[in-house]
């Protein structure tokens, strides 16, 4: 049968920053072909195809996503594969090679992580599973 793609509505204007992304306007409807856990989703809308940030989309129908409702404080360990400097007050700055605990995986690609006493959002694309449970 035909492939039914999930339809999302765009919550705010998005200006693309690289050639493989596409522009979004608030109120647009887009169909998602692929959902990447790093928060970039592949979209087709009208004649355009390209990557868009999941953070600018909301489901048109009932949310069907498998997103945990609450943080899991017995999270899994990951190692940072790139450094990142926080730009918002709810983010966390980490160097490359630090072991952290992921306590909440969000579909927008900004996972909540814990390092010692500190928690904050960090790009999931800079995280790699450590393999051990510690």
């Amino acid at each position: 049968g035909p492939i039914i793609l999930d339809t999302y509505s765009v919550i705010a204007d998005f200006t693309k920053t690289s050639k493989d992304e596409i522009e979004l306007r608030a109120g647009d409807l887009v169909e998602i072909v692929e959902k990447n856990s790093n928060g970039w989703w592949f979209c087709q809308c009208d004649y355009k195809r390209g990557w868009v940030p999941a953070s600018y989309l909301e489901p048109l129908d009932q949310p069907e996503e498998a997103e945990e409702a609450e943080p899991d404080y017995g999270g899994e360990f990951f190692v940072t594969i790139s450094s990142y400097t926080a730009e918002q007050e709810d983010e966390i700055s980490l160097q490359s090679g630090e072991v952290i605990e992921v306590i909440h995986r969000l579909l927008d690609g900004w996972w909540v992580v814990r390092k010692g006493e500190e928690t904050g959002h960090f790009p999931s694309m800079y995280l790699q599973k450590t393999g051990d449970k510690e």
Partner: peptide, 22 residues
Amino acid sequence: TMKNPPQNPPPRPPAEFRRKHV
């Protein structure tokens, strides 16, 4: 063909849609 996603982190949600998790 579908290309690889951008290599930079996606933007955070617009402030008014950002949920408090921390």
